[in-house]
Amino acid sequence: MLTIHGVTRSRASRIIWLCHEIGLEFRQVPVIQAYRLPDPEAADAPLNTRSPAFLRLSPAGAVPVLQDDGLVLSESMACTLYLAGKYGAPFGPADAAENAQMMQWSFYAATAIEPDALTLLFLSASAKPDDRAICETAVERLIRPLSVVEDHLNHHGQMVAGRFTVADINMAEVIRYAQGQAELMARFPAISAWLSDCQARPAFRKMWEARLAEPE
């Protein structure tokens, strides 16, 4: 059976969401991020990204990790693209051109959007002036890539091929990090409507309920 190593409050959420869309059964091993623990190396610490057992599986010490038929794969978007390619349309590519487009938008999300979106997720609640300045810069930097996605959605409705695919999952899970920035999101009505539709899907709701059930 497919195994996903990582708590749902991590980038494992992308893989879990896709598995629910496909209807793919999986086993989840709840490996928690070490930075969330007071002492990840304590004898009674839960399984985490510094645990020797996990490091043998993932020397990088990062979740998620996917195991499937002898394959051990890290990097969340590599995992979702692998599963989408293995199981094919409608969530995966129907041909080489769709495969390339799904990779294009996934990589764009990871490189052009995710770093600044994560900055907003982690620092937006901070009262420190320096953190507020960092967030203001992150918002400014996001305007250009989000404008690209906004224009694309206005013309095509979905990220690839006019249907919901793994590219929508990968992009939506990245933009979600900035979703709490109401003023920023108000500038992008097509993204906001598309994101709302993505998050209304039963597979997302199932993943999200499991995520909320985990300790913060």
Score class of each variant (00 low, 15 high):
residue 1 M to T: 14
residue 2 L to D: 09
residue 3 T to D: 00
residue 4 I to V: 14
residue 4 I to C: 01
residue 6 G to M: 07
residue 6 G to W: 06
residue 6 G to I: 04
residue 9 R to L: 08
residue 10 S to D: 00
residue 12 A to N: 08
residue 13 S to N: 13
residue 13 S to D: 10
residue 15 I to Y: 08
residue 18 L to F: 11
residue 18 L to I: 09
residue 19 C to A: 15
residue 21 E to N: 05
residue 23 G to N: 04
residue 28 Q to H: 12
residue 31 V to F: 11
residue 36 R to Y: 01
residue 37 L to N: 02
residue 38 P to D: 02
residue 39 D to L: 03
residue 44 D to C: 10
residue 49 T to D: 04
residue 50 R to E: 01
residue 53 A to I: 14
residue 55 L to K: 14
residue 56 R to F: 02
residue 58 S to R: 09
residue 61 G to I: 07
residue 62 A to E: 15
residue 63 V to S: 00
residue 65 V to F: 03
residue 69 D to N: 12
residue 69 D to G: 10
residue 69 D to M: 05
residue 70 G to W: 07
residue 71 L to D: 03
residue 71 L to S: 07
residue 74 S to P: 14
residue 76 S to C: 06
residue 77 M to G: 09
residue 77 M to A: 12
residue 85 G to R: 15
residue 87 Y to S: 03
residue 89 A to T: 00
residue 90 P to C: 00
residue 93 P to S: 03
residue 94 A to I: 02
residue 97 A to M: 11
residue 100 A to E: 08
residue 105 W to Q: 00
residue 108 Y to S: 07
residue 112 A to F: 01
residue 115 P to M: 05
residue 115 P to V: 04
residue 115 P to R: 07
residue 116 D to H: 14
residue 120 L to Q: 04
residue 122 F to T: 12
residue 125 A to H: 15
residue 126 S to G: 07
residue 141 R to V: 10
residue 144 R to M: 12
residue 145 P to R: 06
residue 145 P to V: 06
residue 150 E to A: 02
residue 152 H to F: 00
residue 154 N to R: 15
residue 154 N to G: 15
residue 155 H to M: 12
residue 167 A to E: 05
residue 175 I to F: 05
residue 176 R to F: 15
residue 177 Y to R: 11
residue 177 Y to P: 11
residue 178 A to Y: 05
residue 178 A to S: 14
residue 178 A to C: 12
residue 178 A to G: 12
residue 179 Q to M: 13
residue 181 Q to D: 09
residue 182 A to Y: 01
residue 182 A to H: 13
residue 182 A to D: 12
residue 185 M to G: 11
residue 187 R to T: 04
residue 191 I to R: 10
residue 193 A to H: 12
residue 201 R to K: 12
residue 201 R to Q: 08
residue 208 W to M: 14
residue 209 E to C: 12
residue 211 R to L: 14
residue 213 A to W: 12
